[in-house]
């Protein structure tokens, strides 16, 4: 009986070892296929492993690979699965905006970024994507206020100044737009958009 238990223990360890080795192979295969540009197979090797059914990282990977293939609905579905597995995941909130932006679903991009900013109020990438959505929705009042706040939180970054300038321009406030574009040129002296605006409105 003792021998039997001993053999069962060895068998279990061997199985666990093989399983871990198989998992590693699956992930390595997926990355290798992605590097070759075969995004479909890179996702398939993960999908075919039952261990990945409820794996958050697998959902994120397959979501991204689906996006790369242009299968935006599948990408959204897998990013939503990742969010179900981990509702606090910033990665998934950011990732899902990729296929949503490709489909021009800016209201959903905005909603996801607002949700992300509840978790991480000053996440820079989240704010940039929110500003992109506000611009796409032509919500100049919201974009102006938002970009203005971001120039305080991230004074070294030019992006918020660009969005602030665009919003001011669309609001008809050329003076404010010029001032914001000058701030852009301090940070990026050869910024084409800022240079063109200043030259046109000098």
């Amino acid at each position: 009986m003792r021998n039997c238990k001993h053999y069962l223990g060895i068998l279990l360890l061997a199985l666990l070892g093989n399983s871990a080795q198989a998992d590693d192979t699956v992930w390595a295969q997926s990355f290798a296929l992605q590097a070759e540009g075969d995004f479909y197979q890179a996702a398939q090797v993960l999908l075919q492993d039952p261990a990945n059914n409820d794996d958050e990282y697998a959902a994120l990977r397959i979501g991204y690979l689906s996006y790369l293939r242009g299968n935006y609905n599948d990408a959204i579905r897998f990013y939503e699965k990742a969010l179900t597995l981990n509702p606090s995941a910033i990665d998934a909130q950011l990732g899902i905006t990729l296929p949503l932006m490709a489909q021009q679903r800016w209201r959903q991009v905005k909603a996801h970024m607002q949700q992300l900013l509840k978790t991480a109020p000053w996440h820079y990438g989240g704010h940039v994507k929110l500003m992109m959505a506000e611009e796409a929705l032509a919500d100049w009042n919201a974009l102006s206020r938002h970009a203005s706040q971001l120039t305080i939180a991230y004074p070294a970054e030019a992006t918020a100044w660009v969005y602030l300038a665009r919003a001011a321009s669309w609001q008809g406030d050329t003076g404010k737009a010029k001032q914001a574009y000058r701030e852009v040129l301090k940070r990026i002296p050869n910024h084409i958009e800022a240079s063109a605006f200043i030259a046109k409105n000098s």
Binding site: A111, Q114, K118, H146, A153
Partner: peptide, 15 residues
């Protein structure tokens, strides 16, 4: 600004 962030920026998603 950071201290106001939670109430000032982080709204729930508009639907």
């Amino acid at each position: 600004a950071l201290s106001l962030g939670a109430s000032g920026i982080a709204h729930g998603g508009d639907r």
